[in-house]
Write a protein that binds this DNA or RNA. Structure first.
Lengths: 129, 129
DNA sequence: CTTGATGTTTACGTGAACGTCAATGCTATA
DNA sequence: TATAGCATTGACGTTCACGTAAACATCAAG
């Protein structure tokens, strides 16, 4: 059980951010007798997913869907099957993103090659002068 | 030479968006005698990069860096070399992003497997009852 | 030459993801 | 028990990436 400040430090976010994540239903920390937030392992695990998702530039709305996988009642077979299907879809989306990133990468690389050619041309001209 | 509305339709963005991209220095369309924007091939190429970047969830600030590669004076050897170096860095960043995406993908897949196991357990229990 | 679609700038509005007070309560320690 | 540090809930402020409306100019068609 960690306090808000401990968690904030650990994940390099502000306390405000953690309260905000709670506001939008991403986190659901327990409270002490005196109303202070307590973060257990599950909340920490969710936050880990959130900060990761953020690094990959997922919107909080997208992240929310993924994080809520952790909160779904997974005692029933139907729930489990549906969750797995959802996961498979997410994987497809991620694959698409990876592909697009590889395209943009190739584009930059091609541009770089073009420039290198230009440099070689310039060097030839330098030799001839 | 295309008008703002033509370009907007072609790329499925609003005219406001194109004006905004100009506001923040991403696009620099020429003007007619009567002050109307004209988009040439170079601007179109830049816009293509911008919309792509957006699809990959790059911020406009990040996209700006990449788009400006098109506007740099590339007549000099030094400029070219520096531009190539920049491109190499960008490629490294993209590679990092790809790696992270692959991690999250693996995580989801692992989760799915766990759930499938749970399902098999449930099915066993069903048989035994 | 009128009309309707399209263009311009200026400027205020919006939703997301927080930042930053303010006013107040809790907690640890010297 | 005083006090510094951390907690709480409002509530307003900020940046990004545009949306939207106003007031006016331009262009194409009949």
């Amino acid at each position: 059980m960690k306090t808000i400040r401990e968690v904030a430090r650990e994940f390099d976010v502000t306390a405000r951010t953690l309260r905000y994540y709670e506001e939008i239903g991403l986190l659901t920390p327990a409270r002490t007798e005196t109303n202070q937030r307590q973060y257990n392992k599950k909340e920490i695990a969710k936050l880990k997913l959130i900060t990761r998702g953020k690094r990959y530039n997922f919107s909080l709305e997208e992240i929310k869907e993924m994080v809520l996988l952790f909160d779904i009642d997974r005692t029933g077979k139907k729930q489990l099957t549906r969750t797995i299907e959802y996961g498979e879809n997410k994987i497809k989306e991620i694959d698409a993103r990876i592909l697009e990133l590889q395209e943009i990468k190739a584009e930059i690389a091609a541009l770089a090659e073009l420039f290198e050619e230009r440099i070689r041309d310039i060097e030839k001209e330098e030799d001839n002068s």
